[in-house]
Design a protein around this nucleic acid. Structure first.
Length: 512
RNA sequence: GGCGGCGUAGCUCAGCGGUAGAGCAGGGGAAUCAUAAUCCCUUGGUCGGGGGUUCAAAUCCCUCCGCCGCUACCA
């Protein structure tokens, strides 16, 4: 039986248009999903939108729309963004869908039945913008004597009956869980923060709101709607068919990986496993929190007007270079800076000069001097041949280990070591000289280059699907033989090669 | 205030007890198959300051300075 792999992005909150941060998470998840498929896993890759809550209700009112119409509109933008960055998600869940509302209600009932939720009363300072309550002590003074949330959002005094989740009862079991699963939350810095937070003591969590209507009604008490985070987190199981254990999708649970931004690490690594364990369900296997992007050294913000729309980026620079840049530039988990200069350097130096040009020079020699067909493997390979072939052969396994740690930039660096080695190989072997002195040797060298390029293009497919498909076309690799297992079988000599075409042209400034 | 992290070549960072590394940028050379791309060689750092442990410290300990994250609280 093939192994399953379930990876998620967060469901994105529909109170604003998609930006580079959303695209980043989705691209990372997509690369992983594609990589796992390449390895032969049965993958379920989920993304979607989080559509309830007071903020959405307000934003809809301000836009003069009912909440459903409003969320329909924004959700469509997210769906479009998902497609525009080439995501290969298997599903796109919206929390306003019946399947989600039903599953979420069952989850609630299960928590009630198990005595994990009780009715109490909440009073405190509430921030609509943050969808959170704050203690008096957490507030900071604002202009003209007002109080503000630590985030700077305005707060109002709210007193209302509320359902509570017995989070306080889970402290020890959570700590035991983290202890037993040291890799559960990564990077390590997030784990430290989480542990210190939990050790500091947990209080019961208010999980319903009676102050607004736009949410999933609490079963049996329609005056309340569910807390948005309980609602939102549940998407990971409702999309997998919960509570229907017969649903084939349910076999994917527990998820192998929730990819999240660092700002929501706690919800995923603390509340979510607590909810699940309390409901008698398995917690996810891993949560990975990535960092944030600044733009040209500055924080992204609407007021600065420097928010990057991923769709603009893609139309300007092309999809694959953008995907490559985002995962290459910064160690996954760290914050990074998105600068035009850095993007152009990666594009021109690594994609165009190193890899694109390597393919082009190899393929044009094959086209011109080998009758556009794949030569036979050398009869007696030299030490140089053996060295580069061994490096290529070792690459997939090396990457597997690196990608299991989500070290995308490290993985790409590893691939580029081989790219550079192949450029050195072609220079040292100088097939253009061999053409006159030793044509059979020239053919052997070119065959080795084709085989090395095939490995490179194969393992890079998850990162740059479209470009690598074209490169594999040019290398004569049939579409059905592009997974990692297929690398074990060499292409037959004589395979005909189409005319080479540049895969990564140098980026030149468009005329103004 | 507490917990944690970071500070290494011009830039971005790796190394985390055993003669300072990579990529980019800079300099010199080779080659001319190729997207004027590539390859080879090379300049460059008292590893934030100070103290300590050790035969040996960027690497461990203490302290100071500067950044950052999580979190708490006082008045």
């Amino acid at each position: 039986m093939t192994e399953r792999f379930y990876v998620t992005t967060p469901i994105y909150y529909v109170n604003g248009a998609p930006h580079i941060g959303h695209a980043y998470t989705t691209i990372a998840a997509d690369v992983l999903a594609r990589w796992k498929r390449l390895q032969g896993f049965d993958v379920f890759f989920l993304t979607g939108t989080d559509e309830h809550g007071q903020k959405v209700e307000k934003a809809a009112a301000e836009a003069g729309l009912d909440p459903q119409s409003f969320t329909d509109r924004i959700a469509a933008q997210f769906r479009e963004m998902t497609a525009s960055i080439g995501a290969s998600n298997d599903d796109f869940i919206r929390t306003t869908e019946p399947r989600h509302k039903q599953g979420c209600s069952v989850l609630w009932q299960r928590l009630v039945e198990r005595g994990e939720i009780y009715l109490g009363e909440y009073q405190g300072w509430y921030s609509v913008r943050d969808e959170a309550f704050y203690n008096e002590s957490e507030l900071v003074p604002g202009p003209d004597g007002t109080r503000l949330a630590p985030s700077g959002a305005p707060v109002e005094w709210v007193r209302e009956p509320s359902y509570f989740f017995r989070l306080s009862a889970w402290q020890d079991r959570l700590l035991a869980f983290y202890e037993a699963n040291p890799g559960f939350i990564a990077p390590a810095s997030r784990r430290n923060e989480l542990l210190s937070f939990v050790r500091g003591g947990l209080t019961d969590l208010s999980v319903s709101r009676a102050s607004f209507r736009w949410g999933i009604p609490v079963p049996g008490d329609p005056d309340h709607v569910m807390y948005v985070w309980l609602d939102a987190l549940a998407n990971y199981i409702t999309a997998a068919g919960f509570p229907d254990a017969e649903n084939p999708r349910w076999a994917y649970w527990p998820a192998d990986l929730h990819l999240v931004g660092k700002e929501i690490a706690r919800f995923h690594a603390l509340y979510w496993p607590a909810f699940l364990m309390a409901a008698g369900l398995a917690p996810p296997k891993r949560v990975f929190a990535h960092g944030w992007w600044t733009v040209e050294g500055e924080k992204m913000s609407k007021s600065l007007g420097n928010v990057i729309d991923p769709r603009d980026l893609v139309s300007r620079y092309g999809l694959d270079p953008v995907r490559y840049f985002l995962l290459r530039e910064v160690p996954f988990g760290n914050d990074g800076d998105f600068s035009r200069r850095a993007l152009l350097t990666r594009m021109n130096v690594e994609l165009a000069n190193d890899l694109g040009n390597l393919a082009q020079r190899s393929l044009s020699l094959l086209a011109r001097h080998c009758a556009a067909s794949l030569p036979a493997f050398p009869h007696s390979p030299t030490a140089a041949d053996e060295t580069i072939l061994a490096a290529a052969a070792a690459l997939p396994a090396t990457l597997a280990g690196i990608l299991d740690r989500l070290a995308f930039s490290e993985a790409l660096e590893e691939v580029w070591k081989l790219v550079r080695a192949a450029n050195a190989y072609i220079d040292h072997q100088a097939p253009w000289t061999l053409r006159r002195t030793d044509p059979p040797r020239m053919a052997g060298v070119l065959r080795i280059l084709a085989d090395v390029l095939r490995v490179i293009a194969t393992v890079l497919q998850p990162f740059m699907p479209e470009s690598m498909a074209r490169m594999l076309d040019q290398l004569g690799v049939p579409p059905a033989t592009r997974d990692l297992a297929a690398l074990a079988v060499p292409l037959p000599a004589g395979t005909s090669l189409p005319a080479p075409q540049a895969v990564f042209p140098r980026f030149v400034e468009p005329a103004a």
